[in-house]
Structures are given as structure tokens and as C-alpha cells.
Amino acid sequence: MVDGHYSLELERITCRFASRDDPGMPYVAVAEASLAVRAGEFVAVVGPTGCGKSTLLNVAAGLLAPSSGAVRVHGEPLVGINRKAGYMFQADALMPWRSALANVTAGLEFRGIEAGEARAQGQAWLQRVGLGGFGARYPHQLSGGMRKRVALAQMLALDPEILLMDEPFSALDVQTRQLMENELLALWSANRKSVIFITHDLEEAISLSDRVIVLSAGPGTHPIGEFVIDLPRPRDVAEIRLTPRFVALHTRIWHAMKDEVMKAYAAQYAPLPEGA
């Protein structure tokens, strides 16, 4: 990793948390994890549940300071919130007291952009995610998929160079999810940003990304494998899953992941009885 053209680098990140059960023994969520994203590259990070994927992303966003390790944005050390990055959360993170349009314009408003100008830009972004006529609705009046679209527009309206996405579509049903994935790819192809897309779904990771990074099971999560996805673009996430190349990649990555998933599973649940 000496390329020098990385827009985001995480180097030997370790995150320790005070354990609730035993304050003397800190819980190491992430250990010595390094990863880097090139400008305009779509990187998917997969790992078993509870492995500290979100922790890693929060470090990249500047929301969480690592216990040790370095974060660099365009080669510069990160101080405070990562201003170059947009973040899309797994949970609903829209402000419920703002209409869809006001949510999209929130970031512009925080940055002191004049209200009329912000409204025009916000409306354009709502149009781009297919919600042009829904600007006046409040989040509770929108469906789960629509709320995700608003969140996407909210993030993209600030034109961030780096997109951090934490399982953004995991709460959606399969059809809505594939629609959203295709729209994300279309928006991304039109204006290529660096993306870190966290997911636990390997198929989603392969169909979206240029590169898949596999994380180990927690505690002490770190990358254990990296796979270049050489599937042609533009892609349709539903169709590409049927191609032989996709299946071959899936088999290879799943093979690398399987042990970690079993480890994570064993740590969370009591072992099944013999022969079960």
C-alpha cells in the first residue's frame, strides 16, 4: 500500500472498550486493522455479525477515536469529524421533525448555504432519488425504502468525496433492496466517489464492489482476505448474481469467510449437541 493515491487509509487501527462485566479486562473490538480505499473505488467490507465492522467505519468517519493507529484522508491525518466523508447509517438517522426536503438540505444549511439555494439543490437531489413529489412529507409518512432514499440524497447533497455506508439497505425487503443497490450504482457511476460499503451479505458485497475485504470474527477484528471483483460494469445486481464469474467469486470468498462465520456463531451461541 505505497500507492499514495488513496483517498482514505486506516493503518493498524486498534479499538479497545472498557468491558461492562469486567472493567479490568478491556474488550478489543478491532485489532491492528489496516485498509485503504483508492479514489473512485468501491470497496465492500464483509464480516460475520458483531465483528466490529461499524466500529471500523466510525473510526473512518471520525466519530470514534481509535485507541491506537492512524487515519489519513488524502494523506492528511484525520482530526475530529471527517469533513470529506458522508455517512449512511444502518438505523433510521433522519431527523423526524424535518420534512424530507428539510432533511436533505440540513447539511447545506449547517454549512451556511443560503436557504433558497439549499432548497433548490435539495429538491434536485430528491428528484434524482425518485422522490421529487415527496419533499413535504415527514419521515414517518414515508416507507422504509423511501426513507433510505432520503438518507442517500441527504448524504450526496453535500457532495462528499468519500461515502461510508454501514449496512444501509439491510432493513429493506429483497426487491426494494436490489432497486436501491442499482440506483446507488447508477449514482456512483455518474460521479465516482470512494466508497466503503459495510455489509454482512456477501452477494451484496460482490455485486456492488470493485474489491471485497473479509474481516475476521470478533473480538480483535482485522482483515483476513482481499478479493478483486473483476465483474464488468455497468452491472444489474439481480442479473449479475446468475453469471458464472459471480458464482466462482462467491465460492472463493465464502470459502475464506466460512471459518470466521462459524467462529462468530460459536462465540454467540451454545454449541449444538453432537449429531444435531
Binding site: 468517519a61 469529524i81 433510521d92 438517522a93 431527523m95 441527504q154
Partner: peptide, 29 residues
């Protein structure tokens, strides 16, 4: 206040005062 909403507002560039005005106050209201 929902931690996700708070983190989101911070990522969108809200200052401490803007967090108070646009997140804490409406949530408390």
C-alpha cells in the same frame, strides 16, 4: 436523543450550537 440522528447531524457538519438548535431542542420538545 437517538444516537444515530445525533451522529448523522454531526456527519452533516452541525456545530455544537446547531446540534442544540436542530437536534436536542426539537427532540426534547
Amino acid at each position: 436523543v437517538s444516537p444515530a440522528v445525533l451522529a448523522n447531524a454531526r456527519m452533516l457538519g452541525a456545530s455544537q450550537r446547531q446540534l442544540l438548535r436542530h437536534v436536542y431542542m426539537p427532540s426534547a420538545l
